[in-house]
Design a protein around this nucleic acid. Structure first.
Lengths: 343, 343
DNA sequence: TTGTATGCGTTATCAG
DNA sequence: CTGATAACGCATACAA
């Protein structure tokens, strides 16, 4: 059954010989863009031969010759964060219909891994990068930008750099979350922010402070999480509860941080939303099936990815295009983790 | 700030000139495996020049010359299924420490996409494939296998083909699930199977039938889901409820199908586990936070990925190695979606 | 319409 | 230890 001695893959030369033409002719026949230069009959013969041999063009040779890779790199901090797979899909849906392939790399939130992966991507001649790992201060991205690497940021931005970016309208989302809680009657609302080293953490933090002030509420019930994770959300929540009292609602930096709050509620026998309300951010999958279903701010993940991909294509086609920033609208999704405060 | 005219990437030639040596010497100096052929002094000079220029070897040229890509393809049906990201991480953790890069592709459960993506991977000279999309009948995989493509299956297998595979011990897992329900006193236990065209669907289906028979229970309360999805799980559950009565417990083919059951319970005002118990399969993330927390069979995702990667490395190193099948142990995780039947 | 010749950037073989 | 040279497979400018 199994072929124990796999033959070397057929080359263009093999195809040409089988079709009785020269490699140049075979090359033209196989490439849709040059096929019309040769007779239909010859083209058919070549294509048949290629089919019969199971010919696959060697993309190393092609890439070396054309210095094009038809490949784009997608840099993700952590694929196990449910936020990212839909973004990946959005990116792929656009890029693939345009003939590009997407190479996904996971940095695991580690600078060294990020550097290594991006180097690897560059050595593979990717034609552009979509980067979801930006921090406000990001020497590596700054360096790449200065080197003229074609790049679009997604979800997060770098400070003071004119790099094209697609993000959600976080400020509006946070304002909507705070308004929802204020309307329910909450007066002591806390924020468990994401890392302030990221633009999303920073923007949501600022938006939170502005929003609570606008409602005449205290703006100092804030704890920063070390990472965008459930564990760090729980740590921050414990911290908050040990240092303040009477807080009846929490705006979490994202859904994972909100899940960390759930863990602490379970530990301490608190009932959500009866004892305390929580709002997440992102609307990652399955939140509607949580106990309780989590109120959150929905970000259009797929669109985020798709728009970033479109923007990258634009940048590839038109390298001198000025950088734009696209802000996609978000929406509050009210579920059962928010209710009026107990009185 | 931004470089408007990005220079062409420096080549080995540029490095060699800067260091005042021949390209061959530069090549040897930069490659750790040949560096000892070169005087320490020259090597240092070359490495410094490379560093200064920001030299990145062109992997097309290298791949063309060496016909090695240091790349492995990972074929995933659907990255948004939370089962897969941990598997990806497991694969990466092993392969990367061995100097390989992993190219992840998403087939979206579509044959044509799968074929196109795998063709693309092969044209990029991947040294092996880890495939998570197998069906029992799978002409494409069979063809690849016959062509001698180095390949390891993960999670699912192909029928009658000796392809190396790493999977969870599904049969034991299903038996444990049924035993748990029987011990609770359930006598009418249903199974919402995954697609029987997949080995996982088939094996779990068979194991379910054997298990209920072993307990002297009816073995005909079975509905097959069209896909491993929440929506198809819900459809199957509605189907089951319309055609049978008195069933007090469900063994779902996987966690997503179990989530579909939750949707139907919500529709019909059924309380889980009071009115009906459910068990999932896989123990995907966040199940402990569901309403109710889902009892399930935990599969070691990360290990699955890591073991498949190790097996692939073995296959690459030793092509004539006979195919083995590795069955990783699973364990029942009892949460709150299972309880004694109402009486 | 087809064939010829060349070179992409790298590594391997062979001399020196 | 280092340099010269060839070759990997393909696409393209040029010639016919």
């Amino acid at each position: 059954m199994t072929n124990p001695n796999p033959l070397p893959a057929p080359t263009l030369r093999d195809v040409a010989e089988a079709a009785g033409v020269h490699t140049a002719t075979a090359s033209r026949a196989l490439n849709p863009k040059t096929r019309r230069q040769i007779s239909a009959e010859t083209a058919r013969r070549v294509m048949r031969a290629a089919e019969a041999l199971g010919y696959q063009p060697n993309s190393f040779a092609r890439g070396l010759k054309t210095s094009r890779s038809s490949t784009v790199g997608l840099v993700i901090p952590d694929l196990t964060n449910p936020l990212f797979p839909p973004i990946v899909r959005g990116v792929e849906s656009v890029l693939e219909s345009d003939g590009y392939n997407v190479w996904i790399v996971n940095t695991d939130n580690d600078d060294n891994r990020e550097r290594a992966k991006i180097e690897s991507l560059r050595s593979r001649q990717v034609e552009g990068l979509i980067v979801a790992t930006a921090r406000l201060e990001h020497p590596l991205l700054q360096q790449l930008h200065e080197q003229g690497v074609t790049m679009v940021l997604i979800n997060r931005q770098v400070e003071n750099l004119r790099i094209p970016a697609v993000t959600g309208d976080d400020a509006t989302g946070v304002a909507a979350a705070v308004r929802h809680l204020a309307d329910l009657g909450h007066t002591r609302i806390a924020h468990l922010s994401g890392p302030l080293s990221t633009s999303t953490g920073h923007v949501r933090f600022q938006a939170f402070r502005h929003a609570v002030r606008d409602h005449g509420l205290p703006d100092d019930l804030i704890v920063e999480c070390a990472h965008w994770s459930e564990a760090d959300g729980a740590t921050a929540m414990r911290d908050l509860m040990s240092r303040t009292t009477g807080c009846t609602a929490v705006v979490a930096g994202n859904d994972l941080i909100a899940l960390g709050c759930y863990d602490v509620f379970a530990e301490r026998g608190l009932s959500c939303p009866r004892d305390i309300s929580v709002i997440g951010f992102n609307d990652m999958p399955f939140l509607d099936k949580l106990r309780p279903p989590l109120t959150t701010v929905a970000v259009p993940h797929h669109e985020l990815g798709a728009e970033a991909a479109r923007m990258l294509l634009d940048c590839i086609d038109e390298p001198d295009r000025p950088a734009r920033s696209l802000l996609l609208p978000v929406s509050l999704v009210v579920r059962d983790s928010t209710a009026p405060p107990r009185r």
